[in-house]
C-alpha cells in the first residue's frame, strides 16, 4: 500500500500507526514535498482482515512474538502459557497492576513485548511511565 500526494505527485511518507482499542486502525502519512498530512482510517472489518493474516500495516516495529496470532485471537485459558523470566527488567508494582488488566491469555506476550522494549533501551525497572512511552513507540495503545 502506497499513498500519493496528487498535487505534488510525490509518494507520501508513513508517519505513525495507532490502534485506539475499538477494533479500528489508523495510519498517518505526510507528503515530503508540501507537508500535507493525511490519516487512513480502517474500519473493524478491514482491521480484522489484516490481523487475521498475522501481518502489520505499516510494517513491523518489533519482531514477531511466539504464537502471536493464536495468543491474540484464541479464547484460551489464562494459565496456558508461563513466561521465562530470565534476564528481564523488573516490574514496578503499579505496572504489574496495570498489566493485570490485560486479558490473561495474552498477558504474557504483552509483558514480553514491554520487557524487550525496555531491555533494548537499558531500562531496569518498568514503571507506568515506561509503559506509556513504549505504547506510543510501538503503537500498542490498546495494551
Amino acid at each position: 500500500m502506497k499513498f500519493l500526494c496528487i498535487d505534488c505527485d510525490e509518494q507520501m511518507t508513513y508517519e505513525d500507526r495507532q490502534e485506539p482499542g475499538d477494533g479500528t486502525f489508523t495510519a498517518s502519512y505526510v507528503c515530503p514535498a508540501c507537508g500535507h498530512r493525511m490519516a487512513m482510517l480502517a474500519n473493524p472489518m478491514e482491521t480484522q482482515l489484516v490481523g487475521s493474516l498475522g501481518v502489520k500495516v505499516g510494517g513491523r516495529t518489533l519482531d514477531q512474538q511466539p504464537m502471536e496470532l493464536v495468543r491474540q485471537t484464541l479464547e484460551g485459558r489464562d494459565d496456558a502459557f508461563v513466561d521465562d523470566p530470565s534476564g528481564r527488567p523488573t516490574w514496578a508494582s503499579t505496572s504489574e497492576e496495570r498489566l493485570a488488566r490485560v486479558p490473561g491469555f495474552v498477558r504474557g506476550m504483552v509483558k514480553k513485548i514491554y520487557s524487550e522494549w525496555a531491555s533494548e533501551r537499558g531500562i531496569q525497572v518498568i514503571t507506568p511511565e515506561v509503559m506509556d512511552q513504549a505504547r506510543v513507540d510501538l503503537g500498542l495503545e490498546e495494551m
Binding site: 480484522q48 487475521s52 493474516l53 493464536v70 484464541l74 479464547e75
Partner: peptide, 26 residues
C-alpha cells in the same frame, strides 16, 4: 470449552478459516 476466536469486527465465521490456518502455521 470449544474452539473460539476473538474478533473485534464480529462475524467470527468469516475469519475462522484464516485464523485456523494461521494457528496451524504458528
Amino acid at each position: 470449552r470449544p474452539l473460539q476466536w476473538r474478533s473485534s469486527a464480529g462475524d467470527p465465521a468469516v475469519w475462522r478459516g484464516l485464523l485456523e490456518i494461521g494457528a496451524l502455521r504458528e
